[in-house]
Computed example of a mutant assay.
Amino acid sequence: MLEVYIDGATLGENGKSAASFVAKNKQVCLEGYTFIGEKTNHEAEFHALYFALVTLKHDYSDEILSIRSDSKIVVDTIEKAYTKNPAFLSYYNKIAELITHFPHVFIKWISDKDNKRADTLARTGLQTESTVIQSCS
């Protein structure tokens, strides 16, 4: 099972945004961030989950994923498999399709203090306006 921590970061209410993830277990540690342009913070949080799933799909589709997010709206949307918000619907549809490539995906809400590495990576994506996927320790 891979533990996957995700986070989004946005400057201001609707500004420059980035998304990040950290995926790890005893054998794997992979992390990444990506600049995503101007989005709301909620959109950045959804994009973080999308970014993680797209990245992990190719090499880790046989893994069970335990997603951890400090965004209650992302966790609630994925758990309920539903959103009324049209801005989130396109993200949800893409995420729902990607989830089918893994044997099982859990999602759990965590506090900000338990998501510090993903937060740092998302902020790095904001500062550098770039995309990086790398091994971590």
Rank of each mutant, 00 (worst) to 15 (best):
L56M: 08
T10C: 12
H101Q: 07
R123M: 11
V22L: 07
D112L: 10
A118E: 04
A96S: 15
I67F: 04
A52F: 01
S137F: 11
Q127W: 05
L89N: 15
E3T: 13
S69L: 06
A23Y: 06
I67Y: 02
V132W: 02
I99D: 06
Y50K: 05
A118Y: 00
Q134D: 05
E63Q: 12
Y33L: 07
K39A: 11
N41A: 15
T124P: 00
H47R: 12
A87G: 12
P103E: 05
Y60I: 08
T128R: 14
V54D: 00
M1L: 07
D76L: 14
I107G: 03
S71W: 07
S111R: 15
L49Y: 09
A9I: 04
Y60K: 08
A9H: 05
A44E: 08
D62M: 12
H101W: 03
N85W: 03
V54G: 08
F46E: 00
H58P: 04
L98Q: 02
Q134S: 12
C136A: 06
M1S: 14
N25L: 11
A9P: 03
G37T: 02
D59K: 14
H42Y: 12
E63M: 14
H104S: 13
T77S: 08
E38V: 15
C29Y: 11
V22D: 04
K116R: 14
M1R: 11
T83Y: 07
G15P: 00
D70V: 00
R117Y: 03
A23R: 07
S130R: 03
K72M: 12
N25T: 07
D119V: 04
F35E: 09
G125C: 08
Y91H: 10
V28P: 11
L11F: 14
K57W: 02
L89A: 13
I107D: 04
T120E: 15
T77K: 07
E79L: 15
E45R: 06
K39S: 09
A122R: 02
D114M: 13
N14I: 11
E3M: 13
T10D: 02
A81W: 14
A19W: 08
Q134K: 11
L11P: 03
Y91R: 12
I110T: 04
Y33H: 11
T120Q: 14
E43G: 09
H47D: 11
